[in-house]
């Protein structure tokens, strides 16, 4: 009796590992760790009528043109993508109060226009640099005002900063000089 009981209580768990391994290998093979990250943007509403032309002071507009050869023209000057971020930051903040840069961050408007033949990669890089300029400015502002990272701020504090440094990025309808033939 005692002997029989001892045998029945010991279940060999050695094969459990094998079963688990099998499942593990199945999931290893089927897994595709997708990078679900990206640049979040908000598109403007569509209207069939062309928007009214607004007269803006040219000092408040930071125009970025990208042509079909993926070259940049920023406020009439050719610029490398690597320099775009610093240029945009200087324009928005205008630390030396120059009269050809924006009056204040609240007035600053970034206007982006590309061609239908512009490479998507270039477009995204430009967009990314412009967003990075704003994010860096907001970060420094957050450090100055609250001594914290922008990401760690509460919603009201974030709103306060976003209100003072609003991201105004207007995209014009692309030109179609260099469109790839379909």
């Amino acid at each position: 009796m005692g002997n029989a009981r001892r045998v029945s209580t010991e279940i060999n768990a050695g094969s459990m590992a094998d079963i688990a391994f099998l499942l593990l290998i199945f999931f290893l093979v089927t897994t595709t760790i997708v990078e679900d990250k990206g640049v979040l943007v908000k598109l403007p509403p569509w209207s069939d009528t062309p928007p009214e032309t607004q007269q803006l002071k040219s000092r408040n507009v930071f125009s970025v043109l990208v042509n079909a050869q993926n070259q940049l023209l920023v406020r009439g000057e050719p610029v490398k993508i690597g320099d775009l971020r610093e240029k945009a930051k200087e324009f928005i903040i205008n630390p030396e109060h120059r009269d050809d840069l924006s009056e204040s961050p609240k007035n600053a408007i970034i206007s982006l226009k590309n061609d239908r033949g512009t490479k998507y990669k270039t477009y995204l890089e430009v967009y990314n640099e412009l967003m990075a300029a704003y994010n860096e400015l907001r970060e420094t502002e957050a450090q100055k005002r609250f001594g914290k990272h922008y990401d760690d701020l509460g919603n009201t504090q974030k709103k306060e900063i976003n209100n003072d440094i609003p991201l105004v990025l207007s995209e014009a309808e692309p030109t179609s000089f260099g469109e790839e033939s379909q």
């Binding site: 598109l43 569509w46 079909a68 239908r116 033949g117 490479k119 692309p174």
Partner: peptide, 21 residues
């Protein structure tokens, strides 16, 4: 190139789908 991307964006705007990643 941006041509086809722009067309897609236009369609999304027409469908009132503004949040894009």
């Amino acid at each position: 190139t941006m041509g086809i991307v722009t067309d897609v964006k236009t369609q999304l705007r027409k469908a009132r789908q503004y949040k894009v990643n």
